[in-house]
Write a protein that binds this DNA or RNA. Sequence first.
DNA 1: CGGTATCCCCCAAGATACTG
DNA 2: CAGTATCTTGGGGGATACCG
Lengths: 122, 122
Amino acid sequence: MKEECISEQIKLRGKIYPCTISLTMDLVGGKWKTVILYHLKDGAKRYSELRKEMPAVTEMTLSLQLKQLEKDGLISRKVYGKKPPIRVVYDLTDLGKTFVPILEAITEWGNQIVRQEGEFVD
Amino acid sequence: MKEECISEQIKLRGKIYPCTISLTMDLVGGKWKTVILYHLKDGAKRYSELRKEMPAVTEMTLSLQLKQLEKDGLISRKVYGKKPPIRVVYDLTDLGKTFVPILEAITEWGNQIVRQEGEFVD
DNA sequence: CGGTATCCCCCAAGATACTG
DNA sequence: CAGTATCTTGGGGGATACCG
């Protein structure tokens, strides 16, 4: 039971990581991935809904991050309809759902800091 | 009780974030910060110990990330001695310690993935 | 021993415009 | 409606050499 972060290297899908934490950060790290996951945690959403809820992200970046999350098996992408208007719906996969508790812990941790020394702005 | 991630913006130490998750990722995100925190979770360590345990990080980057973690109040830096050889010891602050449960959850989550489809290499 | 000082490169991310 | 295409930029991180 000593398979924590240290010592051995890890190979996953062709990539080598020095430890498990590195691996996780590769899958969900970056500026927006966790935010996207957060917005999907209570159920599937359309592309346009995500856009509306995350105005700080550009279309390009949102689209790119969604693709990566899909590739890494954290979210699913379903297309409804053939001709515009098309509906594209994103949802957490089973793997993605297992990350929700961490997402909520991260949020709560951040909120503690904000309560102590930050402020909510409009 | 509606202060989760959505809607309001957050201001902390002069920076504006669209949500709490963004804030947290700014503090502990990036390629190495979580790894450093992980290596400090069981107690204080010297600079050279951290180096040895994290050979994949360059000195420059390690030093830089340590500074940022210190500035953000997650770790402390104590210097013992005046003339070389000097001892510099890093440790988690109280704030840093509150992040340990998340660190362990992240590690466990990554380990699950490795068990299912990855491999440990030497 | 515990770092800095430089230099450099890559790519995440932004801005803007366009499309099936 | 749900994206691409293209161009640009900033800075995170690497490599190497040097310092108090």
